[in-house]
Design a protein around this nucleic acid. Sequence first.
RNA 1: GCUCAAGUGGCGGAAUUGGUAGACGCGCUGGAUUCAAAAUCCAGUUCUUUCGGGAGUGUGGGUUCGAUUCCCACCUUGAGUACCA
Length: 998
Amino acid sequence: MMQYNHQEIEKKWQEFWANNQTFKASNTSEKPKYYVLDMFPYPSGAGLHVGHPLGYIASDIYARYKRHKGFNVLHPQGYDSFGLPAEQYAIQTGQHPAKTTEENIKTYRRQLDQIGFSFDWSREVRTSNPEYYKYTQWIFIQLFNSWYNKDADKSEDIETLISVFEKEGNATVNAVCDEDIISFSADEWNSFSTTKQQEILLQYRLTFLSDTEVNWCPALGTVLANDEIVNGVSERGGHPVVRKKMTQWSMRISAYAQRLLDGLEKIDWPQPLKDSQTNWIGRSQGAMVSFDVLMTDEIKNNHSDKNPFKIDVFTTRPDTIFGVSFMTLAPEHELVSKITTEAQRADVEAYIEATSKRSERDRMSDVKTISGVFTGAYAIHPFSGEKVQIWIGDYVLAGYGTGAVMAVPCGDQRDYDFAKYFNIPIPNIFEGVDISEAAHSDKEGTVIANSDFLSGLKYQKALKLSIYEMEKRGFGYGKINYRLRDAVFSRQRYWGEPFPVYYKDGMPQMIDAKHLPIVLPEVEKYLPTEDGKPPLGNAEVWAWDVNQSTVVSNQLIDNETVFPLELNTMPGWAGSSWYFNRYMDAGNTQEFASKKSLQYWQNVDLYIGGSEHATGHLLYARFWQKFLFDKGIVPVDEFAKKLINQGMILGTSAFVYKTTVFVKNGCAIDKSNDDVIENIPTLFVSKNLFSSDDEFENVVKNYLLDKKLLNPNFEDLVMITKNAIHADVSLVNASDELNIEGFKNHPLNQDYKSAEFITETDNTFKVSREVEKMSKSKYNVVNPDDICEEYGADSLRLFEMFLGPLEQAKPWKTSGISGVYSFLKKLWKLFYNGEKLSISDATPTKEELKTLHKTIKKVEEDIENFSFNTSVSTFMIAVNELTAQKCNKREILEPLLVLISPYAPHIAEELWSQLGYNESISTVDFPRFEAKHLVESAKNYPISFNGKMRFTLELPLDMSKEEIEQTVMAHEKTQAQLQGKTPKKVIIVPGKIVNIVG
RNA sequence: GCUCAAGUGGCGGAAUUGGUAGACGCGCUGGAUUCAAAAUCCAGUUCUUUCGGGAGUGUGGGUUCGAUUCCCACCUUGAGUACCA
């Protein structure tokens, strides 16, 4: 082969790697392990665009590098293949989602293969494969059979809880559980019916059924988790979401809130990602305080219970409790109806009615309007005993804390605004602070005043003392609150994991793990049933026979031995919350993964993926991992040591300027207006012909007059405007010139078939460009298939890395790829002299060794720092230098190939084999850097004056400071700079710089 | 509003503990080669200039012999979050 032929080479080596299973990882090895993982893709119908493989290329380079460094590398890939788009498509076309998914996966696989990734495909997983979701169901059962013991601070088997209940009741149990738990003794527990016991246990289990307010998306026909909603609409499709009460499976992730927070400290993840998880978990430290309601005769008369009502509030500022001048309840608070006085009832009810009509979104977007109503009732301040008004207001959220706040208007801006608006007193409890304009929320340095025993104290002390006193007097205690809510786990969809659950007497029962998987049933339609049940309600064979332990026809349901199965399916994050563990032993049919392989691979060393998963996948996966760790199933409680978010690749859209010519309004002319413009075609104007709207108009007018398309008499009657329209980027070349014929014949531009183009003087037509998100609708999508065809996978890989730092967003411009392509051709030419391979075994020169070793040093540092863009530059410099040195020496070129092979593996393999090797280059040792080759004897010193470099001077490195100063001062250019003045000071840093201060 | 990240030529970007700002590549300009084109090769390409130089890393200050790098304030852009008590 005489010339670099990427198509031939790449096909050859991709086949070689597949046939020889070059990248198959072993679960036993003498070598140290290294696990490199990509966030697996959802196989969408559109296939990959050049933005998608960015992270895969980076991780592949790292994986290949680690193999050269002597590691046993696990680098798998698979598909997150359950999901909404395939199901939406199924609803529209009737096509089974499994089929669409299968086809999409084929496309993905072909596209991934052609980029030359070193994946171990023997470990591929698909979340929609029953052999995989068998274990997703199994994990669900484990969660169901567990509760969170706060004393041990870990999950435990539900059996341990039952045995405590049997012996002691639930008084001593310290668990994370539902709020509304009744207390019972051991005797009571033992006397409860099985159903009652099950009901109680459900309140403790880590996955549980409950009636919760969920985000219901009518358009998608399903509930959504908080992280699946963006700006009040669904993340997928942008459909409206409403609050609705439904019975749903939930995951008690809140049990792990603190550990999820603590775990962030020991993992090397990007700070912004950690910050958003921290925010999402939302820990706040403060106190629970209980206020008694003043039991007036009116309230007492209306209720049998004579004990005073209590309003529990959570506050982060118990130190400001003497600043309380009113309380606010959420309109939905259960006490509202009980305490509202007759006089206020009408107002209160009207307000509740009004707020319930407002959607969550309205409430969120309209933060400015202050609204609320006085209930007529009073609470008693627990310390001072004073009467405090009780209001309701929708700035207090029912879903957070207790749905009630103690309002401290002097210290909280919302309370302050509310108090001002409704003329409620604003007592000042801060020493020397002016609160006439705004609340004072600074904690540090502020001294509390007018606060009984807290007066004169600063924040820290006041906080501790206030909690101490509350606990002593028995109406409050220190508490930590989390914003993190339990995660809704049911979806009313077809294309997801079925729950291994049937219902007996309305209570959920787990199917024994040995009968898994419970395979998704066939249905006629993928829509919800007529009576509003989820799509699985359409299945005819969807009942559980406990005797035969098998799924049977619904007609056999007798609720004695055959029971109905769960109709919901699991959400998208179920399968992705543990897949990284499955890769460690993907083919295992006996268990989740063998102990031995889990023990060997431990966890992911490097995880690369998008930042959009910060509060979804990455939080849930950490939660499941911690749970599996508690159960002794996995050996570590954080699944990924290091994580990198790759930046998005943006598209560079192309715009062409189209004219609209019309007759000015109100022009009276004898001809009909249409005649003036009827012969004027659609015109496009090249970008460089104008810089303002006026110029644009002139260009068009001149063109029309010139071509006699416009009668000069009517020139002033027409108006010309421009609008920019997207042109497909594939029709534009590197110099921003449009392929005019291609544009006219493009299927999307049928309207412009006879359009005319006003071109530049050189007859080219220039488009203007703008960076936008890469998307089909913007005609700026670049397909990697085309790039691989024209320039090859090695060029694609190098270019994606060359674009800029991995973590940054950056625009794609195909024109730039010619740079890396010609680099590869130059590399090839180092080995070839004309048509012949020409390699010398001669000893390299000092210069050649210097080039090689500085490249080794830089590339190694770059890879360790994930700075892949700079190592591509380094390769270019090395090849440029070696070309200039006419170097064709084996001792230089062999190590160079190893350096390049992680980035451009195909060309490296090819040249390596041409050098006479039969084995793949992929496990050859990485070249060792030797500093001795970089030792210099002289330095080209920058000579600066007041810090500005004016000229350079080559001096020996062993020259003393004094000699340097003498030589520099004696130099004619120094004298010219100084113009006779004597310098104040001369700074000399040997080996670095000389700075003369004037 | 709050939190975080980032502002460097026409463009993507480089400058690793403060020490020659603009590496490398694209694009552009000129030249060689060619009947011509593609490809390839060579030279130039921050701005400004009276060709000596001078200015310059979002803006304004500061620390330093020396600042793209450190500190303060501000501006702009992007991301996340949003009545969380």
